[in-house]
Design a protein around this nucleic acid. Structure first.
Lengths: 635, 635
DNA sequence: TCTGACACGTGAGTC
DNA sequence: TGACTCACGTGTCAG
């Protein structure tokens, strides 16, 4: 896995080389002896900087607005806990949103979220903050101390995703190969839980593009095929030195270990995702049946043992047997307390290892305070928590979940022991093909105390359906501004009124546009053959005006006829103006003569007032206002 | 209730006077001995015509589009089964839509919708058709024979609403007083089930305006206060003779019995709804507790005894005790087979009664064929059908329901007998205050075989919530075009993409508008100081053109100077055109003379080509294209 | 204590 | 047949 030999990859290298860094799965109760990986510290030590929140937001905005395609969300996975998000966030924004709400509700009266636990969290978050903001915690640090479970999960799972390579973003980061998956089927087939989830929740396209400072993930509910233009855009926007020195070719590690991956980002989208062989190997060995199951029963994915394998495989694999990972699920204590040593990643690295210390001084420890405060061991929180099972599972995947995250509710419910059995049977089913043969006498686990066994799938499917629907709700919530209440019905109502508002705005704009177009056309016509009407109020207006220097008008009216003499500078075609004025005033021309001598022009005309009669002053004023040079020569 | 003394009301009078007309509640299985009221027949006999479907649609469109306010739906309750609907329908359109879908589903494999029943329906509908289209059924009649349950319900409940005065539309029709209810609380407090439902389903405003030919009902999710302008608009748009003879004052019955109502349509919106005292009396006597309950427990409304009272009260009340109407709920057979005699309405009428015969010859009978074909009596279809209870109830109200209509599914499920008990207990609870003392030994009915009794209300409330949510879904479906699939998730997805589409369109339009605005400004500037460029292609274009009769141009070029002679008709100020052309072509004028003799005008000019040089032909062509009369005098 | 909101499991219907 | 949608009753949580 020697992928990071050039400078661009040194940050990750450094990170992987740091033995301080350990992986920890997301669990309701923090586990012991796990450390927050100090990516930004590593990055800083390697001479890299991270994008600031604003920079990220700005660039994501630029990217999405500039894209011809319509992306549903954009996330930049930066190699720190600093996370930016773009203009239109669906996946994360909603899960985040929803999760936060759920967190708030839960934490308000969940006895298990004890004071000690919260204290512990605060401490960890302070550390995170100090990591994010460099040395020492700045007052305006990104991560609030009163962080919700969702944020907590997010902070943790993010870094995890990079480290263990689960999900496309992490894998893209590890391999340096961009992946572009277009089409629901492809998403479903992708060897990536995240992609499968994306498919389940209605996305059709998912893209992960590694750049030097992180991974850009784009998702869309529409079918968007590979676009070199977009890749280029990303390349330009998400390199640090791109604005200073927009170096075209430096955005991918120059010598990836697996050459097959190097150009796949620019080839056929169908072949876009090719996993690192070694990675796949580990994955497959962990759960060889995964792929088949996932095709026939996609709803199993969320609970799939492969999930757990993702958190474990890349760590101290040699001393354990990777093939028996699912067994680990049956032995939660060891699973959760395992320390996952990232340094194994760097084994094949040709780059020199570097080790880092956290700026805050010491590694972050979960658990010491937690062990005391938590009413039950973390393991119980996992397997006995039937109702939140799926969501916990998705969290365990160690990646940013499409479903609402942060469903912690750790150890509250120990009732419904029969349901626990049910639960166990489900797990049995899921892991039956890989291991645990002694617990599989029946074909599909025992019945749910009711009757037949088919409701098992039914329940699962229904869960999925609900989740999907909720996801859509969150998506809707994301696109509708000013959602007054959290309530679904109100959301719908707001969406409806928003649509109506948009439509009426559109209508208004269209009308305006129409008016403008017609006025433009009129103006153009007018410009071609400038006919202007005479307004009566102009009469009064014009008669009050003072005279310009250099323009002399003399009008003599004799009955219905008038003699006009005009003397002015010959610039700007005063003859045309006089004639236009005569036309405008509907004065029929009998005779006219124009003579230019040097700069002076003298015009003389005899006209008949066929329409209406003017007084001499009126006619003079009207002519003056029309003839007077709009840009007087002297002033 | 003598409200209909003038010609405008004669139609209703006639209808009410017709003893043939009977009220029938909407039930899953058609009931016996009920007749379809022939409103259009009565109207035709009284010399009135009904709006045609297209007319209605067109006028509703005009009304809604012309309104400054944003109405969520518009329904015109016409005094026939002919129904029009407007631009933006929420309440009915969706219920209709949904109902049709449900109907289709149900009828496809519901054994209870037997062939005989369908045959019977077809017969009834043929009769309806013949009533609608006057005498004899026209081939393009409005009501399809393959009518769905929803349409069926609609046809029936509509007329019913007018007759029994339930709901604002019917009451408005009966009393002739418009009602304008703005505000959720007011809707909830209104003595009208329909308004309450409207409130529950998120509407904030509801308006019923009687006009001579029916009642216009408007509803909005927004808060819209009384607008005299709108009332006027309705007044103008929905009178038959309004287009021929827009008589301002003739749209309301001239002598309503209760003078208090006459002007309430134009006064304070808060006092807009004042019921006919006699009507209220009947209502109150039927369910005196209704109002109180409705405030504290709005979810009771749907099952409320008042519901049934609405279908019954105005009929042959004297022989029965109105106060015991809820008992009727316990005696469904009598409830359903009761014949409600509309003629009682006309008792106090000062106008001469008229009686009509249906053009189709005989009254429409429900039930004869039905009794045989239906596997169970109609009464069973009501009380034993627990699951659809609420919807049936809302249908019983005899008004256009806000909830999805047409939930027929008559007698299919007789399982879940314990649930029937539960159901009965619910009914007990609901009617406990009024009657049925022998069935009330316990405080709140017996437990639902589970444990406590509180889930009773809970169930009800949950039902309401679901219904509300669904209503929003339907509303959303109504505003989102091209909803691909019926499925909720897809609907949400479509809505989301629609919103995005709208937004992008808006953005595009805004950009375009901006561009147009700037171009307009530029053009205006250009017009003011008209420096026009000469287009090269115009040169070629113009040089190839033929000459108009009556225009002669002679150009002689001598070095940088040119002599121009132009001879043409003097109409339309050719001098102005020539001078403008000289200006446009940037030819500096040395000398010019214009002389008009009779219709001919001769112009002579000497110019200097300061900018660029033209050949004689070129200059001639350019001048010609500019000078030639846009409307040539001869041709 | 009671009242909305939500998710869940479940039965049932549809394609 | 199975995949999928839906509505319902219920438990639970928040205010």
């Amino acid at each position: 896995m020697n992928l990071w030999t050039d400078d661009n990859a040194s940050m990750m290298e450094a990170f992987m080389a740091s033995t301080d860094v350990q992986i920890f799965p997301w669990t309701p109760a923090p586990v012991s002896e796990t450390h927050v990986p100090s990516l930004s510290a590593a990055a800083a030590a390697a001479g890299q900087e991270c994008f600031s929140q604003e920079t990220l937001q700005q660039r994501l905005q630029m990217l999405i607005e500039g894209a011809r395609e319509s992306w549903t969300y954009a996330i930049f996975w930066q190699s720190s806990v600093d996370v930016g998000f773009g203009a239109s966030i669906l996946g994360w924004g909603d899960g985040y949103y929803k999760g936060c709400e759920e967190d708030k509700r839960r934490r308000r009266n969940d006895p298990s979220s004890s004071v000690a636990e919260q204290e512990h969290r605060k401490r960890v978050l302070r550390e995170l903050n100090s990591l994010i903001s460099g040395a020492g915690s700045s007052p305006d640090s990104l991560v609030e101390e009163e962080v919700t479970d969702t944020e907590w999960f997010f902070l943790v799972s993010m870094t995890q995703s990079f480290v263990n390579g689960s999900g496309l973003p992490g894998q893209a980061f590890l391999t340096g190969a961009p992946s572009w998956i277009a089409g629901r089927d492809r998403l479903a087939m992708a060897p990536c839980e995240r992609a499968k989830q994306a498919q389940i929740f209605g996305l059709q396209s998912m893209v992960c593009i590694p750049v030097e400072s992180g991974v850009l993930e784009l998702g869309s509910t529409e079918l968007i095929f590979h676009s070199a233009e977009m890749m280029n855009q990303v390349k330009i926007l998400f390199n640090f030195n791109s604005l200073e020195a927009p170096e075209a070719g430096s955005w991918l590690p120059s010598q990836p270990v697996t050459p097959a991956m190097t150009d796949q980002g620019d080839t056929d989208p169908s072949a876009m995702w090719i996993s690192d062989p070694s990675f796949i190997e580990v994955k497959d060995s962990a759960c060889p049946a995964d792929a088949e199951i996932s095709v026939s029963k996609p709803q199993f994915h969320l609970d799939n043992p492969s999930t757990s394998s993702l958190t474990e495989n890349h760590t101290s694999i040699p001393p354990q047997q990777p093939q028996q990972n699912p067994q680990q699920l049956q032995q939660p204590p060891s699973f959760y307390s395992r320390e996952l040593n990232i340094s194994d990643f760097g084994i094949n690295s040709a780059a020199p290892r570097q080790s880092f210390k956290l700026e805050s001084g010491d590694a972050l420890n979960f658990g010491e305070s937690q062990r005391n405060s938590s009413p039950a061991p973390a393991t119980t929180g996992f397997l006995s928590n039937e109702k939140k099972r799926k969501k916990s599972a998705s969290n365990e995947e160690g990646m940013l979940s499409f479903v609402s995250a942060g469903q912690a509710k750790p150890l509250a419910t120990t009732e419904d022991s029969d349901h626990s059995d049910l639960e166990a049977s489900i797990r049995e089913v899921e892991s039956s093909r890989a291991v645990e043969p002694e617990k599989r006498p029946k074909k599909r686990g025992r019945k749910p105390a009711n009757g037949r066994e088919e409701p098992l799938n039914h329940v699962e499917a229904e869960r999925m359906r609900r989740e999907k629907l909720n996801q859509r709700f969150y998506a809707l919530r994301a696109v509708v501004p000013n959602v007054s209440k959290m309530d679904k019905a109100s959301l719908l109502a707001d969406a409806i009124s928003y649509i109506k508002e948009l439509r009426s705005k559109l209508q208004t704009l269209e009308n305006e546009k129409e008016g403008l177009v017609s006025s433009v056309e009129e103006l153009k016509k007018e410009r071609d053959a400038a006919p202007v009407r005479i307004q009566d109020q102009e009469l009064k207006m014009a008669s009050g005006n003072g005279r310009c220097i250099g323009v002399e008008i003399e009008v003599k009216i004799l009955g219905a006829e008038a003699m006009i003499r005009l003397q002015c500078n010959k610039r700007n075609h005063p003859a045309a103006r006089l004639m236009a004025a005569l036309k405008e005033l509907d004065l029929e021309l009998y005779y006219a003569s124009v003579s230019a001598v040097k700069d002076l022009m003298i015009q003389q005309a005899t006209v008949k007032m066929s329409g209406r009669g003017y007084t001499q002053d009126q006619l003079s004023a009207l002519l003056y206002s029309r003839v007077a040079d709009p840009k007087p020569s002297v002033g």
